[in-house]
Write a protein that binds this DNA or RNA. Sequence first.
RNA 1: GGCGGCGUAGCCAAGUGGCCAAGGCGGAGGUCUGCAAAACCUCUAUUCAGCGGUUCGAAUCCGCUCGCCGCCUCCA
Length: 433
Amino acid sequence: MRIYNTLTRKKEDFVPLSPGYKGYQVRFVKNFTDVDDKIIRRANAEGVPALEVSERYIREFGADMAAIGVRPGDVEPKATEHIPEMVALIERLIARGLAYAVDGDVYFEIRRFPPYGRLSGKNLDELLAGARVEVDERKRDPRDFALWKAAKPGEPAWPSPWGAGRPGWHIECSAMSMRYLGESFDVHGGGEDLVFPHHECEIAQSEGATGAPFARYWIHNGFVNLGAEKMSKSLRNTLTIRDIVRRHDPDALRLWMLGTHYRNPIEWSEERVREAARALGRFTRLFHDAGTSKGGSPAPAAPAGELRVLVERFDAAMDDDFNTPQALGAMFDLSRALYELVDRARAGAGARDALAAGVGALRRLGGALGLFERGPADGGPPPPEIERLVAERGAARTRRDWKRSDELRDEIQRRGWTVEDTPGGPRVTRKGA
RNA sequence: GGCGGCGUAGCCAAGUGGCCAAGGCGGAGGUCUGCAAAACCUCUAUUCAGCGGUUCGAAUCCGCUCGCCGCCUCCA
């Protein structure tokens, strides 16, 4: 597998520190910063404790992620529950002469860590030239950044060797990832906007303290843009996941996103997501038809070759820096091949085994992308009263009573189901599936 | 100003030196069909923002121009 590493600006073979026997054994840590300036501001505005605010947002975040099928981390630590680790890390940095305390603040001294700037491709002189924020005179260098901030009135604070205060902007990520993944670990991810300063500072703090490489591969994703239109509450075009999930199938949303490579920007568009939903229909109908197709003889001459080639194409695409658009291309081609098998199975051409194998493979591939995981994609079997209407319509069609047949189809529509006549019999699916 | 990215068909989007430039959506024609829908088949970029250059050969490498975007220390 090859991964684009921001650190080296090129695709590299991925070689994990401790290889799993086959595939990869992943421990995914997703950490939460549950105290920062914004949270404190919000808490003061609402007149509630800061942690109450962050708890609420973390809870809502979890619910939103679940709604769109994003899996939680194996560990989801919170900054405020790891203050001692941060203090210890800062003490190490001070001991190694990389940090200094001033009036209850502690700063990281950038000049003492020569690799600073490597991840983001900045050179220190340019950083200084570009400084546009008022310089804190107590810092030895304007580019030094805070590891620990002395408490101001009305702020939550924790005890430390430098007095009551709270962690600086970047230290919590170093402390938590080292706690749960060790001083060196394989992959660190994040949005591309975090490259500088956040990830740069994480590296400085972590490697400065341990002398060992921190994350070995840095993966950064592009943004979801809102196009020309600015997000604004007054324009009522703010995007929340809760809003979006009301209007779109989570799988359609996922398919839309996977259609663009993760490192490229993607523009939010209702229309694009609706297109993705139409494309998704290819898969859901296939699963439906494959499950209900009848006939065929056992031991077919399976097109194992073609099927295998498509699966290999998918794997190769994913192994090449997670090229999901290309992987999806293989899945669509696979679905086309499988629809042909549906027809052959119906014609009794004995393609059932190959079809079953192919659909199973397609489901597995989709599963690797987080698709098709929310139960029957076609809405499952219809309830008895719908079955009854479908049967009644079938009878009307048999006696060529088209008027009655169409009335019944309308009635079924009104009750939220769609009936289509296929060579294999009526296909009944939940409307919109 | 510094660093980096992007510009591929009507729309979206892969492809980064050499078979016919993936795939999806949309569109056109056909097969099937009571109708509708679906599926399948065929077609829909002699061309990759523009101009030069390197090369036997470039969407892919280099230079310039135009257009768009991200980052450039208390926002994690």
